[in-house]
Structures are given as C-alpha cells and as structure tokens.
Amino acid sequence: MREITYVEALREALREEMLRDERVIILGEEVGVFEGVYKVTQGLLKEFGPKRVIDTPISEIAIVGLAAGAALGGLKPVAEIMYMDFLTIAADQLVTHISKMRFMSGGQLKVPLVLRTQYSLGRVHGSQHSQFFPSWFLQSPGIKVVLPSTPYDAKGLLKSSIRDENPILFIESGVLYRTKGQVPENEYTIPLGVADVKKKGEDLTIVAFSRCVIEALSAAKELEEKGINAEVIDPRTLVPLDIETIVSSVKKTGRLLIAADDVKSGSVANEVAMQVMERAFDYLDAPIVRVTSPELPVPFSPNLEKQYMVSKEKIINAVKENFGL
C-alpha cells in the first residue's frame, strides 16, 4: 500500500469531500492564498475557488460562529482554527452556542460543521502555541471530539466528520503532520466512536490519545523485547468514547496505563480511568496509572519542552515502577 503523510491524508479527505458534496466549504485564517500555515489546504483554493475556500479576517469568534450560521443556511462548513490555543477565543461560540443549538431548539436546528484545529506541542512553539485541553469539551454535550493519530485515521475520520450531522471538534497533532503511514487509494471512512486496537497484547493495556499513541507504540515495542506484551488502544474519538473496547482489554490484562498530552488535573486520562473503575474494578490487579504532562505551562526551550512531554521512556518507566512486570 502507498504511504502518505498525515497532512496529505487530511488534504485528500477535504478534497474528496468537496468533490463529493458541493455544500462543503472551508473557512479560516490563511487557508486560501497561503494554503494553510501547515499546508493542509494546499491547492484547494485553486481547485475550488474563493467561494468555497474562504480566507477570513483574524476573527476566531466569527470563524466558529459563522460556520454554525452557514450550516443552518444549508452548507457543510469546515472551519479551521490555526492553533488550539486560539480556540479559547471562540470557546463561547462552541461551548455555549453551537453545542446546544440542536438541544435548545428542540431539534429544529441542525449544525453539521467540522472545526479543525491542531496542537503544536513538540514543535518548540512555547506556552501560547502548544496547549492541549480536549477535556474542556467533555463538559459540552452536543459536540463530538475526534483525535486522529495516524494518516489512515486522519483521512477516514475527517471524511466521516464532514458527513456527520453534528458539530465536530477535530483536533490534529502538529507534530504528526509530517509522519507517514499507509493509506489506501480506495475510498474509505472510519465511524466515529470506535476505538482501534493498534497493537494486541496480554500483559497490560495502554490507552493513548493523539501523539501519545506513537509514543505508546514505541514503548510497547521496547517492552516486548523484555517479554512484556502491551495492548495499545487508540480511542480515536473522545466523544463518544468507545469504553467497551477499553474495558474488554482491561478485563483481559488486569492493568491499565493511560497516556495523554494534557496536564494531569482534569486530563482526559481521568475520565477513562473513572469509567474503567465503574465497569471493571474487580478485574484490576493494580492501580490505574496516568502518564501526562506536568501541571505547568509548556516551556519553550527545546530540551525543556522535550523533558516536559510524554515520551516512550516515561511510559516504560511507569510500567516498570507500577506493575511489577
């Protein structure tokens, strides 16, 4: 099978969906003439024209709020917020307005839109361009949250997100943009709310989100050389969460480690841990372990950022220290 990058996979998904459905439009800062700061939208303005690929003013509230209005007006907008950090500016639109439009209107209003953004942790972007806080949006029922970790997932999940009838927050990892992976040339989609077992194993379960999936897989590989066989699960969507796949793995392994790039307090890891406690407490042979970022702003200096981040080594150490394996 051919290999393409995460960015190319996203671009293919956008292009294919724009060809498939003329209601799909793209709007955001620098998405048109500049072709996206990370080139996700490269070539799309040229192919689809300025009515469907819209360079917007620097107005995050309007980008997100307008996408909702355009969705009400019969289009399927894919809005881009350049950095996840800037999502906070438009959080009111997403949290207090969009997530509740269908509900508040008793089902009369439908807002099929995708809000794409990326977090740049690992790219030496400092504390204001690296933040990752997906758990904030667990508190906003009405939106779905998607976190792809591979080019294959990025393409299949983005296509499903664009076809979905609900508002979707699609969080990409900037550090994964240039990573390569196998992606078929044939059309495919991946349903939202279905986890993927990235590696099978019997000794422990590692649940990892986004970039941490890659770290978890490297850790699992090294652990295997020492005779420890970890199962690695990527939930792929945070809302809805495929807890069944996680729970059935934990019932098999009896041990759970969760790796995520957000800071420990209020991390998405906590939600997974609690749900496993509720459903599989009796199967656990050891306390659940979290490997997350420390409770600090992201440091800028390259070596400090590296030490701050979840890594293969940190996961391996946590396994050794906590599971007596």
Binding site: G65, G73, G74
Partner: peptide
Amino acid sequence: LAAATGFAHAAKIR
C-alpha cells in the same frame, strides 16, 4: 450575530 452573519454568507454563496 455570528450565526446570523454566517447564514447571510451561506445565502450569498447559494
């Protein structure tokens, strides 16, 4: 207001 404006933008495109 942003949704209203987006609705108008969609109307213009359509």
